[in-house]
């Protein structure tokens, strides 16, 4: 969005932005409908679908039983028959409960059948650590989604991107896993008024321009990277923060051209370190910009452990602003 448009934006919450995207797309296209647990009468466990049952009725906003394989597999079948299902799993972790439906049916049906079908399904996945939800309600699983071909993966970090990416996801003919960070639901930010605020997939956002070090971060980590950058600026380190916004497709060009200017790269993610998307970005940057690098690519990531239930302990498992600052100082000194 242009800077001029941004000045006329309203300030709304990330949750509200998602709710608006759902409502606007359902108004725009009658084929769009939703199902999930407690999304109707309750308006969703996190309140994201509030008001939609009243506006669109029980045929288009459907409360299901506790049946993740039906929610996702049913969405796949409904997409093949000319509708656009937008379904909610209560926690991103439950994608394992519907793994066959996500990684096989959504991801491969079109391919296996020679391109005869499209699979316009959006699976909304409340993700990440917040408030001590425990090891099976807190994970960041976006890398797993990235590893299986056939799925697009969105990881919005701001209200504006939450709305714009969700609208793009609903309009996309391919299946999209939409990871909404639970820790961001209450965060407010400027969002354009327009019904046509659509953020294209595969376009990274430079959240903060800088010249000394590139930090790639997603979701909750974007704000922490920005806070770290503010602390680092007085110390003479000018950090560029890049939010890829979607991991599939990944806008590696924006990252590479940033590294060609800053010569240093750090990837920050909440997901576990091993084989996380940081490893993929590091590998791609080494392949494409090895001679631009003045230092190794570093990763600041979640621990390679399950997440403990205790709210303080779980925070200790994911990167903090302080950790990002410390790592950036060390990397800049190499």
């Amino acid at each position: 969005m242009s800077a001029a448009a941004a000045t006329t934006d309203r300030v709304i919450g990330y949750s509200r932005a998602i709710n608006e995207a759902l409502a606007e797309e359902m108004r725009r296209d009658e084929r769009v409908w939703m199902m999930g647990q407690d999304i109707g009468r309750l308006g969703g466990v996190f309140g994201l679908t509030r008001g939609l049952l009243d506006e669109f009725g029980p045929m288009r906003v459907r409360d299901t039983a506790i049946n993740e394989t039906f929610i996702v597999g049913g969405a796949a079948g409904a997409a093949l028959a000319g509708t656009i299902p937008v379904v909610e799993l209560q926690f991103a972790d439950f994608l394992f409960t519907a793994a066959d439906e996500i990684f096989h049916k959504l991801a491969k049906w079109r391919y296996m059948h020679g391109g005869q079908f499209t699979m316009p399904v959006v699976v909304r996945l409340p993700t990440g650590v917040v408030g001590g939800a425990g090891a099976e309600h807190s994970q960041s699983l976006e890398t797993i989604a990235m590893h299986v071909a056939g799925l697009k993966v969105a990881v919005p970090a701001t209200p504006s991107d939450a709305k714009g990416l969700l609208k793009a996801a609903i309009r996309d003919p391919d299946p999209v896993l939409f990871f909404e960070h639970k820790g961001l639901y209450r965060v407010k930010g400027p969002v354009p008024e327009s019904d046509e605020h659509v953020v294209p997939f595969g376009s990274a956002r430079i959240a903060r321009p800088g010249s000394d070090l590139t930090v790639v971060a997603t979701g909750l980590m974007v704000d922490r990277a920005l806070a770290a950058a503010e602390q680092l600026a007085p110390q003479g380190i000018d950090v560029e923060v890049i939010d890829p916004r979607t991991l599939v497709p990944l806008d590696i060009d924006t990252i590479v051209s940033s590294v060609e200017r800053t010569h240093r790269l750090m990837v920050v993610h909440e997901a576990s370190r091993t084989a996380g998307f940081g490893a993929e970005i590091a590998a791609q940057v080494h392949e494409r910009a090895f001679f631009a690098l003045d230092a190794p690519v570093w990763r600041v990531c979640g621990t390679d452990t399950p997440l403990p239930q205790d709210p303080d302990l779980e925070q200790a498992c994911i990167p903090s602003t302080d950790e990002i600052v410390t790592a950036a100082l060390a990397l800049a000194a190499i």
Binding site: G73, G74, G77, T83, D100, H104, H113, Q116, F117
Partner: peptide
């Protein structure tokens, strides 16, 4: 002819979803 999954039983949920689309439309 909607195709076939390689994992048995996936068509239970897919078929029900296709029927849900027919009901909606």
């Amino acid at each position: 002819v909607m195709g076939q999954g390689g994992t048995l039983g996936s068509s239970f949920v897919m078929g029900a979803g296709t029927a849900a689309a027919s009901q909606l439309l």
